[in-house]
Design a protein around this nucleic acid. Structure first.
Length: 461
RNA sequence: GGCGGCUUAGCCAAGCAGUAAGGCAGCGGUCUGCAAAACCGCUACACUCGGGUGCAAAUCCCGAAGCCGCCUCCA
């Protein structure tokens, strides 16, 4: 299979570190506020990556962090911790805040059929691992002290700019932040932050009481769970220049190796020609999506309509399109599941197309096209083989088609009575009464469809 | 100022050198008491614009325009 690598800026053949296995580390949520649909595009992406790897027969180990400390509100290594700010605003402890939003995150993820990573690790549970990693970094001569704490010396790592292809000489250092005169290089960042007495979450360390820099947790935990050389690290494209660049530098400083073989980054969800972000004030959560009449899985389908590396338009129209598409797939399943199996082989070319598409840097749009071709031809053939193929595809798509098809919403007794009455009216060809009853059923929020097998009722779309 | 991305039908979006996937919407038809649902069919002589290199370019190169992201926290 081929996968894009941010480091090399090209698609190349995936060769696992250990044959038959793949280790994936995903930059997880900072749990101090609700995650929005833009965030979730990233997790649909990493989930899809995991599912594709599994589909192609790899033994997957998927690790994701939960950031519950150390993520400051500014990058000056002196600002307020996000968790603590949230706690102060809501009158709770940082841990209460973190656990609350962590739970909401995983509840939302579950509604998107995002599989829980095999290992979910909280930063605060790994402080000793982080301290140990910093010891190694310091022992290897990559750190120095300032009044802020222990600082990473990016000047010691010639490869520092490679991941994001930074032009450090031309970068306008401190263009939007104040320059710390104690730093040797503008890009240097804090490994361990001390002298912040107002900070609630503090731990003892060889460098004094304090707390870890943001980038540290991902280095420490990815190495702990996946080893000093692992296959894939995922995250949003915004993490390339700072977070992942620094992580990579830490990894090298501690181990002397290129720890991450392949970096993969998803592009943003674009809403009204701008990104979705807190400062943009255009956040939409999964719950709010449902208020708009859009199911979480409709959103998952939307994510599948574009390549993960391309910006995806999030509009009322694109959402509606995704919702209708998913309904189409489900409606097909309702019909197809009762057809006989006629020719078990005709879907094979499409299945091959599907597999090739997902193995080509996760080209889900192309894979989806194969699925729809099966739908069209399946309809013509009236062959359940089509449905079996779609259920196989769903191992990658994660739309839960089988469950969606099986889901039969409850029909209120009142509606059932009206339907029965209408059936009687139709039998006696009393069309006026029949139509009146259909309108009445419609007012109650249901649609009745006449089929050869009798009336079928479902909630109005 | 630096780095990067995008521009394909009404909308979303694949394709990345061999003559435009797929979905949504729309239109026509079959079915139906009428509908709905479902199904069948149709819908870009063309890929922002201008040059260039190829037998061949949406696809490669150069240039222009528009839009966007990152270099503050951010998926």
């Amino acid at each position: 299979m081929k996968l894009y690598n941010t480091l090399t800026r090209q698609k190349d053949e995936f060769v696992p570190v250990e044959p038959g296995k793949v280790g994936i580390y995903t930059c997880g949520p900072t749990v101090y506020m609700f995650a929005h649909v833009g965030n979730f595009r990233a997790y649909v992406f990493s989930d899809t990556l995991r599912r594709v790897m599994d589909y192609l027969g790899y033994q997957v180990k998927h690790v994701m962090n939960v950031t519950d400390v150390g993520h400051l509100t500014s990058d000056e290594d002196t600002g307020e911790d996000k968790l603590e700010k949230g706690a102060r605003q809501e009158g709770k402890t940082p841990q209460e805040i973190a656990r609350f939003y962590e739970k909401v995150f995983f509840d939302d993820a579950a509604r998107l059929n995002i599989l829980t990573p095999h290992i979910v690790c909280r930063a605060t549970d790994h402080i000793p691992d982080m301290i140990e990693l910093v010891r190694r970094i310091e022992a290897n001569g990559f750190a120095y002290r300032t009044s802020v704490g222990l600082i990473f010396d990016t000047g010691k790592y010639p490869e520092y700019a490679a991941l994001s292809r930074l032009n450090l000489a031309e970068q306008q250092a401190g263009a939007r932040t104040t320059v710390d005169p104690e730093r040797r290089n503008p890009s240097d960042f804090a490994l361990w932050i001390t002298n912040q007495p107002k900070h609630l979450m503090q731990w003892d360390s060889p460098w004094g009481r304090g707390f870890p820099g943001w980038h540290l947790e991902c280095s420490a935990m990815s190495i702990k769970y996946l080893g000093e050389r692992f296959d894939i690290h995922t995250g949003g494209i915004d993490h390339v220049p700072v977070h992942h660049t620094n992580e990579r530098a830490q990894n090298f400083a501690a181990t002397g190796k290129e720890v991450v073989v392949r970096w993969m980054h998803n592009a943003f969800l674009v809403i009204n020609d701008t990104r979705m972000g807190k400062s943009e004030g255009n956040l939409v959560t999964i719950s709010e999506l449902e208020k708009l009449g859009v199911a979480p899985l409709d959103f998952r389908y939307l994510c599948h309509t574009a390549l993960y590396r391309m910006p995806l338009s999030y509009t009322a129209e694109s959402l509606k399109s995704a919702r209708n598409s998913l309904r189409g797939l489900v409606d097909f399943g309702r019909n197809a599941q009762v057809w006989p199996v006629k020719d078990p082989a005709w879907t094979e070319p499409f299945q091959r197309e599907f597999k090739e598409a997902v193995a080509d840097d996760l080209n889900i749009p192309q894979a989806l096209a194969a699925a729809w071709n099966i739908v069209r031809e399946g309809n013509q053939r009236q062959d359940r083989t089509a449905w079996a193929a779609l259920l196989d595809f769903d191992r990658v798509l994660g739309l839960g088609l089988e469950r969606l098809v099986g889901a039969t919403p409850g029909i209120p007794d009142q509606v059932a009575e009206l339907v029965a009455a209408r059936e009687a009216a139709r039998k006696s060809k009393d069309w006026a009464e029949s139509d009146r009853l259909r309108d009445r059923i419609g007012e109650l929020g249901f649609v009745v469809e006449d089929t050869p097998q009798g009336a079928r009722v479902k909630p109005r779309p």
